[in-house]
Write a protein that binds this DNA or RNA. Structure first.
Lengths: 155, 155
DNA sequence: AACTACCCGCAACCTGGTCGCAATTGCGTC
DNA sequence: GACGCAATTGCGACCAGGTTGCGGGTAGTT
């Protein structure tokens, strides 16, 4: 499965292991930390280069869950993401939830959407409940990734 | 309409004028350029601070159309965006296109989505037509905002 | 006109990511 | 098992986009 056209280096093997071991949604720095736990000399730029490479090979994809760093996960099991702007809670949205949007985008604009690349922001059930009045999103608060209670970058 | 709790400074007035004059989808640097054409001493950090302020007041919103800088536009006429990953073409998606997604997100996860903050990437009609085989998005190419033919930040 | 809290210009700084380059290292071949 | 060589790595410098602390200026009040 590995190395279609490239070499199998220890750094790459280790990065793949980290990706398979973690259950998805890792930032590049998360992965770097895992890899560097066993191989301290692997440089962050090597991580970035290999993530790029693996993405070009179709092994993994990156998504943006918010204003912070990108998240990487294996390309199997395609899904989008819903991210709470208040608490950072992330839920995986099955691809079929986007079917209606995909259909109308194609019909109205000839557009074929890829719902995976950017998350859909909003408010999770808990934060909707905690909210006093429906403010229609006027009161945006600075988005804090990895905030307390957030599940981003956890392993 | 201006200044609920703040002062009306020349820099702010000028920024608002730039926003109203331009037809939306400006980056902070675009707006800075417009403002600085008449007031060269207005610093980019002042632009950022006032954009933040105006966003907190609900006058405007920012969205991310790709990997580049954020785009700002007036909060009136809520809409999402479809952005072509190949050519940068941006089309405004009316809010009702997201109604189905909003409904299923609420039903399945209690999630209330805000489809405006991040664009939905994909491929525009022209790029779909120009594409030879259905590659299922494995061949991601580096996203280039402001590329030739792109309509981002034009003026 | 005076006062003062808010705002601005500036430069330094920060995060997330990219690049050029010399040294190293897989991997095919002998 | 050693050799050759190009792919890959480690490193530091760099970049884009944005934020922050600070001292001085100015809008709005008295």
């Amino acid at each position: 499965m590995r190395a279609r056209g490239g070499r199998v280096t220890t750094a790459r093997r280790s990065l793949l292991e980290a990706l398979f071991a973690s259950s998805g949604h890792c930032t590049a720095e998360d992965l770097a930390a895992i890899v560097q736990a066993k191989m301290p000399d692997v440089h962050i730029s090597t991580i970035y280069r290999n993530l790029d490479e693996l993405e070009r090979l179709g092994v993994l994809v990156h998504t943006h869950l918010g204003h912070g760093p990108a998240s990487y996960h294996l390309a199997s099991s395609p899904h989008g993401h819903l991210v709470c702007e208040r608490c950072g809670e992330t839920v995986e949205a099955p691809a079929e939830m986007f079917a209606g949007l995909a259909r109308s985008a194609r019909k109205r604009f000839g557009f074929r959407i890829d719902p995976r690349h950017f998350a859909v922001l909003g408010a999770c059930a808990a934060c909707v409940a905690a909210e006093p009045a429906p403010v229609s999103f006027a009161g945006r608060r600075k988005f804090t990734q990895r905030g307390p209670g957030g599940s981003l970058g956890d392993r």
